[in-house]
C-alpha cells in the first residue's frame, strides 16, 4: 500500500471515530430531550416521543451501517458478499412486525379480561343467599 494511501486511511479512521462519537452524543441528547430533561414538559406530547424515537432508531441504523461499511470493510467487498450477508437480515423485518403485534395482543388479551370484568352486572343478587324467600325480580 502506498504511503499516502496509508496516511489517508488513518485519517479516515479518525474521522470515523468523530462521526460515531458525534452521532452517539446526538442520540443521547435526543433521547433526553424526548424524556423532557432538556426542556421540561415536552414529554407530555406523545408525538415528541415518537419523533425522538424515530430519530434515534434512524441514527442507530446509520451507526450500524457505518460500522459495517467502514470498520468492517464491507464497502471494499464485492457486491455478492455484501448481498449474501445483508439481505438475510431482511428476513427479520416480518419477524419484528409479527412479534410486536403479538406483544401488543398479549397486552390486549390481559386487558380484555379486566374490561369484561368491569362491565356493569346484569343482576345484583346471587342465588341461594339466605333462607329468606325472595324472587330475583323483587330485588333487581
Amino acid at each position: 500500500m502506498a504511503h499516502e494511501n496509508h496516511e489517508k486511511a488513518i485519517k479516515q479512521v479518525y474521522i470515523g471515530l468523530g462521526i460515531l462519537a458525534v452521532i452517539t452524543l446526538i442520540e443521547v441528547g435526543v433521547s433526553l430531550f424526548g424524556k423532557g430533561h432538556i426542556i421540561d414538559g415536552v414529554e407530555s406530547n406523545t408525538w415528541v416521543i415518537y419523533i425522538a424515537a424515530l430519530l434515534i432508531i434512524g441514527l442507530s441504523l446509520y451507526k450500524a451501517k457505518f460500522i459495517i461499511y467502514e470498520f468492517m470493510h464491507m464497502r471494499y467487498e464485492v457486491p455478492g458478499l455484501i448481498r449474501s450477508v445483508l439481505l438475510p437480515v431482511l428476513l427479520l423485518v416480518w419477524a419484528i412486525i409479527a412479534f410486536f403485534l403479538e406483544g401488543d395482543y398479549w397486552k390486549e388479551k390481559r386487558n380484555k379480561v379486566k374490561v369484561r370484568n368491569e362491565m356493569p352486572a346484569e343482576k345484583l343478587v346471587p342465588q341461594g343467599m339466605l333462607d329468606y324467600e325472595w324472587s330475583k325480580e323483587d330485588l333487581q
Binding site: 409479527a98 403485534l101 403479538e102 401488543d104 395482543y105 388479551k109
Partner: peptide, 10 residues
Amino acid sequence: SGVNPMISNF
C-alpha cells in the same frame, strides 16, 4: 395457541 387472529391471516 392463542396468537393474534389478525396476524394469522398473513
